[in-house]
Amino acid sequence: MKTEKKSRMQRLFEKGEFVVTAELGPPKSLDFSVLDRKIDLLSGVVDAVNLTDNQTAIARISSIAAGLYVMKAGLEPVIQMACRDRNRLAIQADLLGACLHGITNVLCLTGDHQCMGNHPGAKHVFDIDSIQLIQIVKNMRDKGVFQNGDEIRNSKKSDLFPPYFFIGGAANPFAEPFEWRVSRLEKKIEAGIDFIQTQCIYDMDRFGQWMKEVVDRGLHKKAKIMAGITPIKSLGMARYMRDNVAGVTVPDSVIQRMEKVENVKEEGIKFAVEQIRQFREMEGIAGVHIMAIEWEDAVKGMVESSGLLPRPKVS
């Protein structure tokens, strides 16, 4: 049985298009009006949206359920799957379920520690880690087997029925040990990722260094690399990201630039657009992933000013 059904995102990459995705956090309650608004803001502006999975360890509507919702509204979902809350049984079950409903873009993550969220007394799972998860998803797709080696079919007599996925991962070029970060990406590629989205980038020099090594090792040819962007909305936010968010670096030059202007929002977007333009020129970058947290109204302007609208069509 062939269940291969390539996502729009995958087909765009294959056509050589510069792909644009955005982050979309599922709401905490069944009041979907916020999500409806965000869907409106992002429709036709990005190629797919990431539905986060209990992001920062805060309980929300599940990524797959929210993914189905946005899909009905015409947006393509990338569902995030973190290792913190589910063991290998639950993960494989959820992945099959996602595929059943036509969701194939999966972003495999380790997941933030539960102490970062609102249920610090929860027990984390971490039965597997993100690299093992990537390998499991790849084997489900390519070999038609579960993690234990059993074939994915209903009975011995029925057809092998592997699910289809476009497999993503995250990379943080700014976490430490810095020298290890490209090797970690390589490990994820070896495990089976098709695309990666990076942590949000402010330090263009350090990112450039990382990217150069990625290209030198030829890794950009093995997986599509999407540069992560979070536009700066306020000085407070920039400082907070610099001081409190593990794995995010905000250079002083960026802070100083924001300090100098009256309208930080405007300057933040301007900086993001400059970044996108640079990414488009950089060798090895196949797209951008925009994480405009609670600032989805900014996305359209950013994409437009970067010369990326209208989004290309795929048949």
């Binding site: 380790t110 933030d112 520690h113 971490f126 880690d129 993100s130 995250a170 976490a175 593990a246 794995g247």
Partner: peptide
């Protein structure tokens, strides 16, 4: 803090863990 087997997660900074930086 997560009992990972395949190297550091993205929360490692300055030699410290995201759980208590």
């Amino acid at each position: 803090s997560k009992g990972l087997m395949n190297g550091p997660c993205g929360g490692s900074e300055g030699g410290k863990c995201e759980v208590d930086p």
